[in-house]
Design a protein around this nucleic acid. Structure first.
Lengths: 220, 220
DNA sequence: GATAAAATACTCCATACGGGTACTTTATTC
DNA sequence: GAATAAAGTACCCGTATGGAGTATTTTATC
């Protein structure tokens, strides 16, 4: 039985998706969430053996958007597969979602049959499900790799400020607030404030979790 | 009427492909070639109005292989779409073919129906046809752009015990002592002691520094 | 000049962490 | 079978950390 979580802010969308999934007896909806924040909270409460195998994630949501939710969760739960399921297909969203850790990108216009087939194939062979038109856009990204892609879109899926990136870098070196403060000539209190702000952007609550994301997402 | 050229060194392959194409009345086989050299020569002899719209190219051919033929032809004939049609799906070939200018990459195992659909879609919407498993490999190229992953087995240079390696692994996931303790059924105090012992073996004195070593030395 | 975002600095409080000591278990050696 | 070393277990203490605020200054943008 494949456990699948569905994250979408529209109740109707969730219903449509879960209905499609219910046609396949191997699929079970593990839980539903209405935004990234809600999703991450629910994930934290689940014991490991109840974690979903696959997460279907919409991108356009209030509070915490899908990209940053995938960025955090794919580092914290490396065995869970994250599949974007949305109506949008613009290059920037695709790129950022993939860099955040999505293994698939499906358009909602796909039929339930196609979605089910692709998810089953993901489970059996590990191949990420990708809608054809999305696949072509990804191909084009490979074709023009360094094409003046703004740095903020590529390396910065969490929207960290320059100061925050600097402090995350120093934290990774094992310095405490006092040491960092005297190194860059600000108060330890301010360092701490920055750190808390970083945690909020990464959706974590400890140094270890923040550093895990920083290392696995190439932030440092 | 969509003119399609077929390039493959095996006569039987060419026959199978052209048979599949003939099922669609909008397709016409412009010409066939047995290798890259032959293909380029025939292209040079054609007047512009007779150039194929789409070229189906095998990669494994004598004389001039598919990749370099695509590289040359995609520059000389920018309006022609080049689609790789092969049985191989290894990362290097995919990457090189795309960089050479291929707009699609199909596996021969695809059914004639699927290939026809995808070629028709290429004609109508301009979206390159890509087999799902290929699409996933391309996605991974975007995901791990600089996969400099030398990292050979870093044997146990720090002489960590099994328990210590286990705990270091759990620490890297951002779990605190209490969570680790309940996960492996020992007291949080004991987890803490193991952690301190790990610090001594790594010659560090904080979680951040220990994780830095763990990540950069490939301990986890 | 108005406004928003980022950076700065501080408080209080609960708790997780790093450093230490001490006991038990397991394995090995004589 | 006793001696011993290594790993594993457990607890206490002082401090750094994380959470939730409030507030002022600087910078950027329109």
């Amino acid at each position: 039985m494949i456990r699948i979580a569905v994250v979408d802010d529209k109740a109707n969308n969730r219903k449509v998706i879960t209905d499609k999934l219910s046609r396949n007896i191997f699929f079970a909806v593990a839980f539903q969430a209405v935004n990234g924040e809600d999703f991450l909270t629910q994930m934290r409460c689940l014991p490991e053996e109840d974690l979903p195998h696959i997460v279907l994630m919409d991108l356009e949501m209030p509070e915490v958007d899908g990209v940053s939710a995938i960025g955090t969760a794919s580092s914290l739960y490396p065995n869970v597969k994250f599949v974007v399921l949305t109506i949008f297909d613009d290059d920037d969203k695709i790129f950022r979602a993939i860099r955040a850790g999505a293994c698939g990108y499906l358009l909602k216009e796909e039929s339930g049959e196609v979605i089910n087939d692709m998810l089953m194939n993901l489970w059996e062979s590990g191949a990420g499900p990708i809608s054809p038109s999305i696949a072509y856009k990804i191909l084009q990204m490979v074709q023009q790799p360094v094409t003046a892609r703004p740095e903020k879109e590529t390396g910065n899926i969490f929207q960290l400020s320059e100061r925050e990136k600097e402090i995350l870098q120093l934290l990774s070196q094992g310095l405490d607030y006092k040491e960092i403060g005297s190194k860059i000539f600000i108060s330890p209190n301010t360092v701490k404030k920055h750190t808390i702000n970083i945690y909020q952007k990464l959706h974590v609550n400890s140094k270890a979790q923040a550093l895990r994301i920083a290392y696995t997402k190439g932030l440092i």
